Amino acid sequence: MSERLPLSLSNCRILIVGLGLMGASLALALRGKCKALYGVDQNEDTRRLALMHEVVDAVWQDVTQTRSVDMMILAVPVGQILRLLGQLNVILQTPTVIMDIGSTKTAICQAMEGLAEHLDPIGGHPMCGKETLGIQSAEAAIYQGAPFALVPLTRTSPYAKSLAEQLVTAIGSRVVWLDAETHDRMVAAVSHLPYLVASALTLSTPLELTSLIGPGFRSSTRLAATPTSMMLDVLRTNRLFILEAIERVHVELAQLKSLLNQEAYEALNQRLNAAAEHLQKILQKG
């Protein structure tokens, strides 16, 4: 397989399956950086817009209709990624690097282990996006400066690793090499839990309070607008790590509630200052 795969991204033919926000934005970021750029999307309007705005060179409705490529990127929700991985051994007959950009990695990497020998898998996850999905919201800039996790399998070849790293660098993102379990534990805390916290805060806010809603509430709850079509599979495939993260927040909230209930304002002040200091450390390290 190594003799047939290109080492250079500029010589690579890439197929992106799913031209929603992430897939179309990735295509825009890759324009002019690879040999050919193709797309697959089941939505007719999405395919029309992709061609109208020259997001890709060609687009098809189904993976089975496409031509041979060097790299296939699965940019659909996690559940669809898992279903596609179960079909690729039959669909793809030539050596191909398979990369996904799903939000969880353990289940996906386990499914990738079942790919045929001529398929070369590597997991990926860019830490960027918007609450509004769809090709209409796509822009190359969302990848600029963003951390991009790459999660190789034991079987992943040096060629696939090199090609994935070239791609991440080309779109302006920052490579972070991780194993699947570490990735899922980390994103449970910094991505999946914030979505649930934003949802809980939104649901606990009575409608009669809306006249006083300002930027603080809006920024704290914006993730609640993320469509469940993307998030339910994420929550299902990363359930245990998310539950651990929820428990840590529960402990902190219980402590703050206890201090407030006791009117222990000096201790409360110390705890809140500790949170502000910890936030600065988190942001500086990131």
Rank of each mutant, 00 (worst) to 15 (best):
T202N: 03
A170Y: 05
A254S: 15
E181S: 10
E181T: 12
V249T: 06
L240W: 13
A164S: 07
Y143R: 06
E244G: 04
A245C: 06
I246N: 03
I246K: 02
S211T: 13
L207Y: 04
T205G: 08
A225K: 15
Q262H: 11
W177E: 12
D179Y: 03
S211W: 06
L243G: 01
V187E: 04
R239I: 09
V249A: 09
L272I: 13
A149T: 08
L209T: 11
L193S: 01
T228Y: 14
S219K: 06
K257M: 13
I142P: 00
V187G: 03
T221M: 11
L178V: 12
L193D: 00
A140S: 11
T182A: 15
A141K: 14
Q166I: 11
G172P: 09
I246R: 04
K257N: 09
R155Y: 05
L240T: 13
L178M: 07
A149C: 15
T237L: 09
A225H: 04
L240G: 07
G172M: 04
S220D: 14
L240S: 12
N261P: 00
F148Y: 13
V190H: 07
Y159S: 14
P227D: 04
Q270N: 15
L259I: 08
N269R: 11
L209P: 00
R185N: 15
A198E: 07
M230L: 15
R248V: 08
V168N: 01
E181N: 06
L243D: 08
A164F: 12
L256N: 05
T237E: 04
S229G: 14
L232E: 14
L193Q: 04
L212G: 12
S173M: 05
M186L: 15
A188R: 01
L193C: 07
L253T: 01
V249Q: 09
L235M: 10
I242N: 02
A189L: 11
L253Y: 12
S173Y: 09
L209I: 02
L207Q: 10
T210I: 10
